[in-house]
Design a protein around this nucleic acid. Structure first.
Lengths: 209, 209
DNA sequence: GCCTGTGAAGCTATTCACAGCT
DNA sequence: AGCTGTGAATAGCTTCACAGGC
């Protein structure tokens, strides 16, 4: 049932939830689709379509109840038991990501880090222990980890991904600037920062002339 | 003319260039569209369409000349004089990005960093001097900076973006997890890592049942 | 009147499929 | 035979526009 929702819609739902959370903290209680659209830089029709996908219904006169809607998005997006992640590659970027993700979502946290550098193994980064790669399978099973973040150099990314696949990881957030070749049942989301920066450079130039 | 190429195509061209560079280093000289497609995890037809967009033509019998193609992509994507970027927000993430982007592309480099923390101002990060925000306009003009990377906390992102707009920045790579409201002639690419991780969590779960 | 929910239209992006070349 | 380049077809996503409700 839920597999029929597009990746783009899932992304926007994640965004809506955050924006709604901020509105809630400011004391708002209800929102119209066009208000949420404005915050999210989308259109009202799209907001309504996205909410249709999760089966949430608003009220034509008051709009959407913010608290309720946040709950509905959570019911749809989050695993009830929460989701544990592993970080592979405790370099500059890896450490920044650990900090960035820590405490952001109650149901989604990085529970273990891995590196091949013996200087890092056994140390705590934030509240996250760094293990050697050889213990990947064991730790992943113990801590019920299902998703992983790859923050290793490009040359090691594919090898790392293969090990993750063997460890039964089902989803990967990939920061290495190379596409990963993996079995089709593993979901991969690429964060190609080089691509992103080159895009910005290109369109900035295109706009300037 | 070049504005007619879609953002997705631009992104893939950036990827192709990197993949071709690696193939070149391995000693390859020619490539067929299906070979590049395999590396890029796309289809042969799409590779050919993308190359059509930049007006590069291959040879039906030998395929594409790798060196030549890298050159053509460069002619299309890169500003001949190069493109200078600024980094705003020298926290954990900002520093990781400085390291990540340094030396990756000859024609695209981060030339200045900005922060509001006086402890950071005046220091060198990598080869990048950290300036106070008050000097943004001046430094941007002096160093001919046209694009910027936002790596500040969510609460400060919009304010930072407004200052960048005032400083005549034409493109922004935004790592803050909030959409930015800016004049339409400024290109913004969002790197919403929270969204990406939630997507991975969702589809990993969907695949597991 | 101004909202939501949604079928239908419109767009954009991708893939098919084949003519033309070597 | 096996490739490229490309019109035509398809699939996927977004927006329009309006019925129905308060």
């Amino acid at each position: 049932m839920k597999t029929s929702v597009s990746s783009k819609t899932i992304g926007r739902l994640s965004l809506y939830r955050r924006l709604l959370g901020r509105a809630l903290q400011k004391g708002e209680t209800h929102f119209y689709s066009h208000q949420l659209a404005k915050l999210a830089k989308g259109t009202a029709a799209q907001v309504r379509r996205d909410l249709m996908a999760i089966g949430y219904s608003g009220n034509p006169s008051k709009g959407y109840d913010i608290k309720e809607l946040i709950g509905s998005i959570g019911d749809f997006l989050d695993a009830p038991e929460g989701e544990n992640a592993a970080l592979i590659g405790v370099g500059n970027l890896g450490i920044a990501l650990l900090t960035y993700f820590s405490g952001r979502r109650p149901k989604l946290s990085v529970k273990a880090a891995f590196d091949k550098d013996f200087g890092k193994i056994g140390r705590l980064f934030g509240s996250c222990m760094c293990y050697p790669m050889s213990e990947l399978g064991k730790v992943v099973a113990e801590k019920k980890i299902r998703i992983a973040i790859i923050a290793v150099p490009a040359e090691e990314a594919q090898k790392t991904a293969d090990r993750l696949a063997k460890a039964n990881i089902k989803g990967i957030l990939n920061f290495a600037p190379v596409p990963l070749h993996l079995p089709a049942d593993i979901f991969v989301e690429d964060m190609d920062m080089t691509m992103a920066l080159e895009k910005v450079a290109f369109f900035a130039r295109a706009a300037s002339e």
